[in-house]
Nucleic acid binder design. Structure first.
Lengths: 336, 336
DNA sequence: CCGATGTAGTACACCGATGTAAAGTAGGCT
DNA sequence: AGCCTACTTTACATCGGTGTACTACATCGG
């Protein structure tokens, strides 16, 4: 059997509760006693049983992170940043994959978590305001990324609208007028795809450019492969275009691949822009113009906010928008 | 307060233990009773407290996965596959990042886990046989990726040696003789870097080609950025080379970037090969020749193996080698 | 008709930590 | 001296499930 607190107490010649006090940094302990206890812990190789502590105290020191797919670079990098930030607070992260479609997203998020997490960071892809009401989590929650208006939880948001507009305006300034868009989710009124598409349309309209609906191509999952397929469809349609706005970077990278394969020069024939600023965007050929949503910042802010809620902060729910940044690279500017 | 088993029992008119039995699929329960209990659970929205169960039963239903960095595509994709596989067994995955350097790798892995995980999947990067003795995990463990000889734990291994040799032989068959290698860890005798480098040297020797030690460039972390830097150093050295073997794909992609920027044509001037077959390798420009270590297979096998150990299988420790596959693509063959 | 076996359910102690309350000591103030 | 505060440690109940042991009835083979 494993070493318990009782064993440590016996070894040190004190009561179990004193050992507990030492471990939890209770201030009123004689230095001599503390040393004895620590020595005993060390000698026996004691590891506290977190389940037992949790049972009594109600805290696990674990926070959940729900993301669509870890294999997508954006979420891998986000998870990395969240784990890093959580570590600063002495918390461990438990990751759940919600999968890329809406139905699964809803089931997974409502799955009982057995009081196992003290809080939940949730990065939804296709959910909207009406769905959020369904969330039955008892633990505090912070939403990442998506803007869902008037929801009763905290948000740390990507500036989807301003970021997308900045990308579109950049393309317009380069003289492009026929800007195709990849990754739309037809029929969806909420979620990242809808928000970014609307921002794209708005930016065009604001600059007096008609929205070319025939240049919008859908892609359910935002993978390289689906980006490549959507681009294939775009080319097959025979419609003219001089730029591609991909709703995220992986789609853009798939698009670049397909365009290059068909002998189109980037950016000479077609300029390409993405969203997310994943590491890969700096090293692709050509390097990718993209919107940096402030990943690290988002992770840090979100964890901080969650910790505040977990420690009983009951103030008004917050909506924090992370600052975005447009990185212009070869895919729109060329190598010069 | 949250709903407990006692509440459910009262509501259903049975004893708490009967509720427990229903939840755990104990066979001897009248259909009528089961229905009553399930109805009560549903009516009260009962969620079992995992900590309490764990305290008595010793099982949490959580397995740990320790990887160097989630932001590296290979590990993101691996984590995805592991979570998927664990779900099949009704297990949740807790991910820990060990960081890319050896010291941190050792501390993190020895950190007390507080009886929180039933088992651990561990994907080390720089550890070797002598380190493994230091692992103090009480829970069963399965090592992923690395070959560490005669260790007292189960392994699911990448076929580093055969895979690397296959890549090198492919380059040799193309007539390349001056094959640079990126990502070595000088001084390390164990770990992935050492194993792959040795296999590279061995393959050359077997084919009567001298090992060009002046063409080995180091990179501590295997990122795109370090791959780019190592390539920069390679070019700056002025030494001639007609191929690059990167010890993983991200390094290769960084290398491609730098080579292209310097006007070198791939594969005409320099052929490039990597290792891992991350999704990106199919969509880069040019697409990347690489060794597929059988990621999904590894994840599935490892989880199955771990589950067997967790359920008390005490047989001899196994070493399973996943089948690799060399994918030849444009970075060595050209677009024809 | 008896003991053996299978089915259905319950009582109770216990897993390992911690919150609460309370006891004991020492020093400070009136 | 008498009382109060600050410090140090402990006893004990308790968190919410589950293992074990036990009761009770039905069925069955000989």
């Amino acid at each position: 059997m494993a070493v318990t607190m009782r064993d440590v107490a016996r070894h040190a010649g004190v009561s179990p509760k004193t050992v507990s006090n030492v471990m939890n940094g209770y201030p009123y302990i004689r230095e001599e006693t503390r040393t004895k206890v620590l020595a005993a812990i060390d000698a026996l190789g004691y590891q506290m049983n977190i389940s037992a502590r949790n049972l009594k105290s109600g805290r696990t020191g674990i926070i959940g992170l729900a993301v669509p797919e870890l294999s997508l670079p954006y979420f891998g990098e986000l998870a990395d940043a969240v784990i890093e930030a959580a570590e600063q607070h002495g918390l461990t992260v438990m990751i759940e994959q919600t999968g890329a479609d809406r139905d699964r997203e809803l089931t997974v998020i409502n799955r009982p978590r057995g009081h196992l997490v003290d809080g939940l960071l949730y990065s939804p892809l296709g959910l909207g305001q009406e769905d959020i009401g369904q969330l039955t989590t008892s633990a505090p929650m912070v939403l990442l990324g998506e803007r869902i208006f008037h929801s009763p939880v905290d948000h740390v948001m990507i500036d989807n609208v301003a970021g997308t507009k900045a990308a579109v305006e950049h393309l317009l300034q380069l003289g492009r007028r026929r800007i195709a868009v990849l990754g739309v989710h037809p029929g969806e009124k909420v979620g990242t795809a809808a928000i970014r598409y609307d921002a794209y349309a708005e930016a065009l309209t604001e600059h007096g450019v008609p929205v070319p609906e025939e240049l919008a191509f859908s892609a359910g999952k935002w993978h390289r492969s689906t980006g490549a397929e959507a681009t294939q469809a775009l080319l097959a349609s025979g419609r003219k275009f001089d730029a591609v706005l991909a709703l995220n970077d992986t789609l853009a990278l798939g698009a670049i691949r397909t365009l290059t394969k068909h002998g189109l020069r980037i950016p000479d024939d077609v300029a390409v822009a993405g969203f997310d600023n994943i590491d890969e965007a700096q090293y692709s050929t050509p390097t990718l113009t993209t919107v940096d949503p402030g990943r690290t910042q988002i992770a840090r802010t979100a964890v901080d906010l969650l910790v505040r809620r977990m420690t009983g902060d009951d103030s008004e729910h917050e909506e924090i928008v992370a600052p975005y940044e447009l990185h212009t690279r070869e895919s729109t500017l060329g190598t010069a």
